[in-house]
Amino acid sequence: MNKTALLSQLDEIIEKYGGLKDNLLQILLDLQKVSGHNYLPEECLEEISSQLNLPLSKVYEVATFYSMFNHEPKGKYIIEICNSAPCHVEGADDLTQLFEDVLGIKVGEITTDGIFSLQHSSCFGACDISPAIKIGTEVYGNLTKEKIEEIIKEYRGE
């Protein structure tokens, strides 16, 4: 999405939340969703600061406090592997290795086609199918190499 279009979408989001400071977190969540690259562009934070009449430092403080917010472009889809204790004891490290092999990147990196980011996450409550991963709001568990390849293909639209 180009910057003008994104800024006009941001206007709509801010309006939806009544331009209220209290809704900063909700505005940031919506913004990241529509950004296309799962992050909060700096110029958008500046725009939020001016529209909500909040110092940029305050907006930045909130935007960097919560771990779901990113500050650099990410892949179109973020694959999050849970590395909390319940998934750890069920082999989250091996699962991470599998994803790294299949995608050809390390945790923290983006695939060259810009489709996937790979990262770790704290527990997201899918412990019944651990070790689990999350892509956006979709959760997958009980994974094998074949299943992983299938999921990757599906998201790539192959």
Binding site: K21, L25, L29, V62, Y66
Partner: peptide, 25 residues
């Protein structure tokens, strides 16, 4: 309904209220 954005500490009740009010938890 108010949404968090990934912060375990917000489970602490006063941190949660800070977060509802749009601040860091």
């Amino acid at each position: 309904v108010v949404w968090g954005a990934g912060a375990y500490v917000c489970g602490e009740n006063t941190a949660l209220l800070e977060s509802i009010e749009g601040r860091s938890g």
